Amino acid sequence: MRAVVMEAFGNVDVLKLSDLPKPEPGEYDLLVEVRASSMNPVDFKIRQGMLGEDWPLPFVLGFDVSGVVRSVGKSVKDFKEGDDIYALPSLGRNGAHAEFMLLDSRLAAKKPSSLSHAEAAALPLVTLTAWEALVSRAHIEAGQTVLIHAGAGGVGHIGVQIAKNKGCRVITTAGRDESLNFCRELGADVVIDYKKENVVERVKQETSGQGCPVIFDTVGGTVFEQCFECLAINGQLVTIVPEDCPTICQGLFMKNATLHYEFVGAAALYQANMEGQKCILEEAAKLVDAGKLKPHVSATLPLDQVPDGHRMQESGRTIGKTVITF
């Protein structure tokens, strides 16, 4: 089978189109014929060694999959050959930038019937990340004002839709006209151009000086540091970017606020409540088929152009998702 293999840690030159043997499913595995995958920042972060160098080499990246089940392990009960599925694969196993892959069945859900495989492949990682952050951790409620940074990004554009579906008032940020307009089309109530406006002042203006009870940081760095000033008393801040900032933690303490770190890969890596992610994807599929949740695919690339997909992710200018099709 064809696969894009990471042969070492480094720049995109370490990615090679190779021929690998088709894998055999283990006890709980699905052998999936991959119809589409998509790009996420975690792909280039692993490749660059930003998350450590514990991955076995050579390694296949790609942590979104939509495809067709071709065979199942002996203990698999929920799926059969021919089922269309979508999932976030484990970050610890070979991923979906290959014609076939092994997927733990406990992570998989039936693909939304209204979506193509290319569209469905844009959903799993970003949907699970946004859902776990906003619903499972922050417990957003109707009527709350929620600040979601980078609303035009992969995670952000799904987060905006989830929050709106929960009845929240959504404030988001963007820095280009195209991104600003896209956020408005998603239904964001307030879209702040962070290049032209003072985000903290605008948030305070929009919340009568109280700040937001929930903030979702998808950017990190100075944006994470800025979140404290935008947060309400007793607020909740969720970030997907690991940061070490003692000053901010002291500030959160003084506001009686809660800080959550969201790492969507933890469930599969540690085999901890993997079925929980399956359930989220099942709920997301219902929203998709009801017309209440929609992934945005900004570009599609063939398998041999995965290195270009890495470059696009590293640019930080992608709106929605870049999908790899087979």
Rank of each mutant, 00 (worst) to 15 (best):
C183P: 00
F228Y: 13
R35D: 10
L237C: 11
G151S: 05
R47F: 06
D308I: 10
L123R: 12
T318S: 13
D78R: 15
D104L: 07
A174K: 06
L31M: 03
E243K: 07
H157K: 03
E201R: 15
V219Y: 10
G291S: 06
A36F: 05
W55N: 03
N273A: 14
A142Q: 07
I192Y: 05
A121T: 09
F44L: 05
K278F: 01
L128Q: 12
G320M: 09
D104K: 04
N234V: 04
S75A: 15
A257Y: 02
N11Y: 00
C249V: 13
V146C: 01
D193F: 01
L51P: 05
S90H: 03
L259P: 06
T127K: 00
D78F: 06
A120F: 08
K195F: 00
R47P: 06
M6R: 12
P246K: 11
N256M: 11
A36Y: 05
Y270Q: 10
V190W: 02
G276M: 12
Q226M: 15
K110R: 15
E81Q: 14
S75R: 15
S37D: 10
D244G: 05
G73I: 03
R184I: 02
I324P: 04
L237D: 12
G175S: 14
D54E: 14
I148R: 07
Q271D: 14
I140W: 09
A87T: 01
N256Y: 10
G95K: 04
Y28Q: 02
P56L: 02
K80A: 15
T218W: 12
G156A: 07
K196S: 14
